[in-house]
Design a binder for these strands. Sequence first.
DNA 1: CGATTGGTTATGATA
DNA 2: TATCATCCACCAATCG
Length: 499
Amino acid sequence: MGSKGKMTDYERRRLENIQRNNEMLAALKVHSKLNDLSAASASASAKRTSGEIKSYKPGSAKKPKIETPLVLRRSLRARGVPPDASTANGLDDDGVIDKQINKSRTMNSNSVPSVSPRKQGPIRMHDSFCGEDGLENKLSELVKGCSENVLLNGNGLISSDSVDVIKGCKSFKIGKKSWGRVEELELKPENIARVVPGRIMSLRFFPTRDMQMVAVGNKFGDIGFWHVNGKDEDGAEIYLYHPHAGPVSGIVIDPFSVSKMYSSCYEGFIRMMSMEKGVFDMVYHSEYCIYSIALSPHDVNSLYFGEGKGGFNKWDVRTGKSSLSCDLHGDRINTIDFNTDTENIMATSSTDGTACIWDLRLMKKEKTTPLKIIKHKRAVHSAYFSPSGKFLATTSYDDKVGLTSGANYESTSMVHHYNQTGRWISTFRGIWGWDDSSIYVGNMKRGVDVISVDEGRLVSTLQSDILSAIPCRFDPHPYNVGVLASATSGGQVYIWTQP
DNA sequence: CGATTGGTTATGATA
DNA sequence: TATCATCCACCAATCG
């Protein structure tokens, strides 16, 4: 792949150093956290109070089986980087790493995945599992037990099995069905859990009616699964895996085959977790960061993802080949979204300050002109089509939520909304619920703001005493209207429900 | 223009 | 309860 303005060698090297360090640190951190927690939970289990928040349970019985070094270095030479390139920065970093490797070897590290997620090729789920012995296969069994709930004809068009379901993929949006007022969504103590350690970057419900399961990806490359209605002795059913070596930028699940889950990572990998095969398969590998990923509702055999500084890729999963690679933006692409109503229409949002609407049929390798450009004054963190496809909601660091409408998306209005998430909170993304009526977006004062489309303003804020951090990432349940998952920078997931 | 630095912000662990 | 370490977002300012 060319160097067309995606990232300089220097940036890449620097990022790699940082990534390498953080992988190490993250591994250590997870070790120590796991150890601490297993100690804590051991003592706490005796006097466990009912008010405690559910949390992932690190395995305590699993044998440490670290054979391979945790850090797999990629040769600089192999990538054409001069050998002296890793001077000041690199050497310092390496010094730190080596010390910590020594330290880590003296640690009693239980329940640590035996493979480095940076390794190419498939990773067995068993090897990246971070839970108790004996539970490695439970998640697969659960997911494989879900029925296939959607029929697909030869053209990739969906014929729904229920009047509730309209076309969709990233989630099956429910049509015009009326439902309770959004202000009435409530938070119950049993619908709170700490699913992963650290900051959550991505969150997704499994698109099935058979159970409520969320998958979340964090900054350390962990993916945690929470079976919300599941029960085990502690009341939480959480499965933690470590398939990536860096922040998990996106998760998408094949709606026609829920045992296929794709995840993208800043480290440049896209993996597909196959419950059937029991592996995190490697689908794609890049030397650039992958910042966003999406599945097309009209063709689930193509993955679309944002790579490096503005790069965009369409990847054919079956042939394992790129079917389109081009530059769409001047900076990272934060989200990719498809219009579920109109085939071939796609929206991207970018840190370059714009969101764009594209016609996939008009896209080509060289410069493609978008159908529409929505301009913000700062980075745009999301651009999502409404369930009907009539609106596009954009969320930007310029403290605006944009609402674009019209037959050709010709009119845009802006609603003020404070979006200064700073460095520690994942950026806000205004999402749609189950109809075109409102947009949900995080609030720095620990709430969920609801913007009414009709009124063009903020109409309410969901709040709760038991919401103890800022909800920054959301996913509405694709089938269960009024079930909204929210995630925080502390690894917690809160699920709002209708009374 | 590319590189670099500094400022901002919330959370969970810890003392 | 207060303090500390975090450091993968973004922007403004500065230097070469």
